[in-house]
């Protein structure tokens, strides 16, 4: 799985960080950082949920 974020859409609502903190982190500069663009299998479910719940639909996932 490859995680892509459209940073033109992202508004740093931090919903993804609440759902999948291993993969997404909003830092003190208010920007979202993807901690691991190729998350391990055990995090895939949470990452999918984070992508679905993003209020701006800014996260897309690719099968690799």
């Amino acid at each position: 799985m490859k995680v892509n974020v459209d940073f033109d859409l992202c508004e740093s609502n931090a919903v993804c960080m609440a759902v999948a903190p291993e993969t997404f982190e909003v830092r003190d500069d208010d920007f979202l950082y993807v901690l691991n663009e190729n998350p391990p299998a055990e995090h895939h479910e949470k990452v999918r949920e984070a992508a679905e719940r993003c209020p701006k639909q800014a996260i897309t996932l690719e099968d690799v």
Partner: peptide
């Protein structure tokens, strides 16, 4: 206010 990271931590 304009501190989204703290909202997650606060929760």
């Amino acid at each position: 206010w304009n501190r989204p990271r703290q909202a997650v931590l606060g929760r």
